[in-house]
Design a protein around this nucleic acid. Structure first.
Lengths: 200, 200
DNA sequence: GTCTATATTAGGATAGAC
DNA sequence: GTCTATCCTAATATAGAC
C-alpha cells in the first residue's frame, strides 16, 4: 500500500534531522572545507546522492547548522537569569555549561566559522548577527549585580566580561578534541579570574 | 661567469629558509590539509614546481616546520630559568611570551598538528616526543619554589601547571586569528588563577 | 525517496624545457 | 636553479534508473 502525504512528510523530516545531526558531528570535528559530503553521508547511513536531495550544497547544510548553533548558544545565556542563586552561582553555571562535552560540537562549529579562511559570506553575516557584543549585553546586568554585591572584582564590567568570555571560548575549542594532555577545567579555578578572593 | 659551489649552496639555503617562512605563515593560518602548495609558492614568491625541488612533498615541509616549532617552544620555557626575579615574575614572563603575536604562528602550527584528523603518523610521533609532560617537568621546580615562597596557591603542583598551561594553550590558539571580538589578555588577570591574592 | 553511475574541476605531484 | 605543461586522483555536484 502506498504512503500517504503525512507519512512522506514524516520520513523527510526524520531524514533531515538525521543528516543535520551527522553533519554537526562531522563539521564540528573537521571544519567546512575539510569535510567531504561522503563523510556526512556515511555518518548518517545514507547515500551520497540522497544528501543532495535534501540539501542543495555543502555550504547550505553548514549554514543551517551554524544558524541553529548560534541561536542555541544565545538561548543558553538567557537561561542563566532563570536559575536560582547569586550572580557568582550563575556564572559558575555558565562556566560549567560551556565546558560540558555535550555542547562542544555546537561551539566548535562556530569556531570553525569564525576562523576558517574561506567561509561563505552568508556565514560571516550570521556571525556578525550574533557577535560578542550580543553576549556582553546579555551578561552585563549579571556582572554589575555581582560587583554591587561584592562577589566580583571591581574591573570595568564590559572589559571583565570580554576577558572571561574569551577564556571560556578558548577553552571550549580545546575541549572538543578530547586530548589527554589537556585536563578538564575546574570552574573554581577559572572563576578566580573574576571573583573576589573571599567570595569563592 | 658561472656560480661556484659556495654560491649555489647559499642560494639553496636562502630559498629553503624563504620557503619555510612562507610555509609557516600559510600552514599556521590554514592547517595542513587546507593549505595548497600553490599558496605557499605564491607566498614565497616562487613557482609551484620549485617547491617540489626543495621539499619532497607537502607533508615533508609541514613536518620540518612542526619539528622546529616544538624545539623552539621547549627552548622558550627553558629560558625562563635564566631570567631574574621571583617565580611569579617568571610565570608572568611566560604568560606574556605565549600571548605575544609574533609567536602565534608557531603555536598555531602545533595546534593544527594536534587537532587535525588526518595528520601523518610522523607528526603524531613528534607531538608525543614533546608532550605536555615535557613542559610540566620543566616547570615543576618553578611552581614548587613559588608555593614555598607563598606566591602561588597550594594546589597539587602538577595539576596546577596542567590547568594553567591548558588555559594558555587555549588562548594562544584564539590569539592567532586576530579577531576583534577577543581582547588581548592581560597577564595579571590570568595569573589570578594560580597566584595567592596578596602576591599580585 | 533512494541509489549508482558520471561529468567536472581542483590540486598534489612529476617531466622536461630553459 | 627555475619555470611551464601535464598527469592523475579525489571530491563536489548532477542525471537517471529503480
Amino acid at each position: 500500500m502506498p504512503l500517504n502525504e503525512d507519512q512522506l512528510t514524516q520520513i523527510r523530516d526524520e531524514r533531515k534531522e538525521q543528516i543535520m545531526a551527522a553533519g554537526l558531528r562531522v563539521f564540528a570535528k573537521r571544519g567546512l572545507a575539510h569535510t567531504k559530503m561522503s563523510m556526512i553521508a556515511a555518518e548518517a547511513g545514507i547515500s551520497h546522492g540522497l544528501l543532495y536531495h535534501y540539501f542543495k550544497s555543502k555550504d547550505e547544510l553548514f549554514l543551517q547548522l551554524l544558524q541553529s548553533a548560534m541561536e542555541e548558544s544565545i538561548a543558553g545565556v538567557q537561561e542563566l537569569y532563570r536559575l536560582p542563586g547569586s550572580p557568582l552561582d550563575k556564572l559558575r553555571s555558565l562556566t560549567e555549561l560551556i565546558l560540558l562535552p555535550e555542547n562542544a560540537a555546537h561551539f566548535m562549529l562556530i569556531h570553525h566559522a569564525r576562523t576558517a579562511e574561506d567561509m561563505p559570506d552568508k556565514a560571516r553575516q550570521i556571525l556578525q548577527d550574533y557577535s560578542m557584543k550580543t553576549y556582553i549585553d546579555q551578561l552585563l546586568p549579571l556582572f554589575e549585580e555581582g560587583q554591587k554585591m561584592g562577589e566580583l572584582v571591581e574591573d570595568e564590567p564590559r572589559r571583565l566580561i570580554t576577558t572571561y568570555l574569551t577564556v571560556l571560548t578558548a577553552l571550549m575549542v580545546l575541549n572538543t578534541h578530547e586530548h589527554e594532555d589537556f585536563r578538564q577545567m575546574e570552574p573554581a579555578v577559572l572563576l578566580r579570574m573574576i571573583a573576589k578572593p573571599g567570595a569563592l
